[in-house]
């Protein structure tokens, strides 16, 4: 777990060239196969919706209202994600592609988590109200150092 509770960073290497990874990130029929179906178009300002699985623990409905915020072909794709069903989610998803040998390292940066809210709600679910507010943060810090 990173120190910063407002972002998630994940990266993965694929033995495929950036051009191919880029297609999988930007062609709707390919996006549907690994993420979720939606009317994506590679155009800044384009808005579309996608249905994902809900995350009950944090109140995310799973219905995503997305917007293309920025892109640089085969290098970067930045999307805005909002909870279309009235949840609090207001995230920025940034994909960065970096050539590595004959393949590509793909970085995901998921920003915009409220450091208190979702964790607290999760904590309430976990602990059936038995814990006080400070515990999840303390736990996260403990986990960081173990």
């Amino acid at each position: 777990m990173t120190e910063d509770l407002t972002t998630i960073e994940v990266d993965q290497f694929y033995p495929h060239p950036p051009g191919k990874v880029w297609r999988a990130l930007t062609e709707p029929e390919l996006i549907a196969q690994w993420l979720m179906p939606g009317d994506f178009r590679l155009q800044v300002g384009h808005r579309y919706t996608m249905q994902s699985r809900p995350v009950a623990a944090s109140g995310f409905s799973g219905l995503v209202e997305a917007e293309v915020l920025a892109f640089e072909t085969e290098k970067l794709l930045r999307l805005g994600w909002r909870d279309a069903a009235g949840g609090d989610a207001d995230w920025t998803i940034t994909w960065t592609l970096q050539p590595e040998g004959h393949g590509t390292r793909l970085f995901l940066l998921h920003e915009g988590f409220d450091p208190d809210d979702p964790l607290q709600r999760q904590a309430h679910t976990i602990m059936n109200g038995g814990w006080r507010t400070g515990v999840p943060k303390a736990l996260a810090k403990l986990l960081d150092r173990v």
Partner: peptide, 22 residues
Amino acid sequence: LTPYERFWRERMAALGDVLDRM
């Protein structure tokens, strides 16, 4: 505590399968 991280790891694994099939 990090369901979203798990979500993305699963999705990115699925992306790898798509790339292998393309």
